[in-house]
């Protein structure tokens, strides 16, 4: 991991807000803010996992970085790549070249194009054919695989093809959105190895997942997503013991609720975007809450080697 201070992050997201216009009844419209003041950064060679429950809107972070938010979404905040703030035009230039998305499944591939050819279209430097073969070779995809159509791939081959697409593009930032749903242990381990491999070659990897155990296995830092924002960004080593080194009460609770730890439940549920409480979004469930917690939304601040959005964290 190379997060020495002073180095420029590959990706820096500052105060990202994403909202949607919703039509409630015929003529009434309201805006729904789904991501609130989210900040996260990724350095070259590093894997940062953004962990949150599914359907919580964390995929919108990926869409915002890639510049592919849906038309009815608006956003504010600054997204910088290599120290430069991104404009929509710049995002379009970088997409698929410097910044690659590894989607959840082969359904994102063109069903009518043979996979070898398809992967070649992602090559931007050098000979497409030899570059594609070279990467397929690396992932044990034989020349026969080049001629297959996406539907003919086994699950394992499909995952390797998707990773190959990112690798041949020469992307420096790879974003993987829920890459391990429904996979068994061996397949999860294999997929995660590919990301480690990308990072070891100098890529920055953002792994967006609901699977905290997968994240803990390979990420260098974990960003914990709750009710539309990251409540903590912690080095992976802090997830140990009783969670003493963790900063946010929600992160501690997540850790202690793992079956191999306490399997301790906690009452309540994560609030939806339209029902966020005043002040700290975790306040209704927090045992450490004080009256100050319900007045203002805590800002993200640095505590030890991490970041936390809690006024009482030490």
């Amino acid at each position: 991991m190379t997060t020495q201070s002073g180095e420029t992050p590959l990706l820096e997201v500052q105060d990202l807000c994403v909202s949607f216009v919703q039509y409630t009844s015929c003529l009434r419209q309201s805006t729904l803010q789904v991501i609130n003041n989210l900040s996260v950064s990724i350095y070259p060679g590093e894997i940062v996992a953004v962990v949150g429950s599914s359907g919580s809107g964390k995929s919108l972070l990926a869409h915002a970085v890639l510049g592919i938010l849906p038309g009815n979404a608006s956003f504010s905040g600054v997204i910088s790549y290599d120290g430069q703030a991104l404009s929509p035009k710049r995002q379009a230039e970088l997409r698929g070249r410097e910044i690659a998305l590894i989607p959840q499944s082969v359904n994102y591939l063109d069903p009518l194009m043979r996979v070898g050819k398809q992967v070649q279209t992602s090559v931007h430097a050098g000979n497409p054919r030899s570059r594609q073969r070279e990467v397929f070779e690396r992932y044990q995809l034989s020349p026969d695989v080049d001629k297959l159509f996406p539907f003919q791939l086994s699950g394992g081959m499909a995952r390797r093809v998707l990773v190959s697409t990112a690798l041949v593009s020469g992307a420096r930032l790879v974003i993987a959105d829920e890459p391990t749903p429904g996979l068994d242990d061996a397949a999860v381990a294999e997929t995660l190895d590919y990301f480690r491999d990308l990072a070891d070659q100098g890529c920055g990897v953002m792994l967006i997942t609901h699977d905290i155990e997968a994240a803990l296995k390979i990420a260098d830092r974990i960003a914990v997503f709750y009710a539309g924002s990251t409540v903590e960004i912690a080095p992976v080593q802090d997830f140990a013991g009783e969670g003493e080194a963790l900063r946010h009460p929600y992160t501690k609770a997540l850790w202690r609720a793992l079956p191999q730890n306490g399997f301790e439940p906690m009452p309540g549920s994560q609030p939806l975007p339209h029902e966020l409480p005043a002040g700290c979004v975790f306040q209704p469930r927090c045992r450490q809450a004080t009256s100050e917690c319900s007045t203002e939304r805590p800002a993200m601040r640095t505590v030890r080697e991490g970041m936390v959005r809690c006024i009482h964290a030490t």
Binding site: G52, S53, G182, A257, P259, M266, P267, Q270
Partner: peptide
């Protein structure tokens, strides 16, 4: 896979 997509707290809550 009843709780596979949920956060660990919700998982523990439902299983309890």
């Amino acid at each position: 896979e009843m709780t596979a997509m949920l956060d660990t707290i919700t998982q523990a809550q439902i299983w309890q």
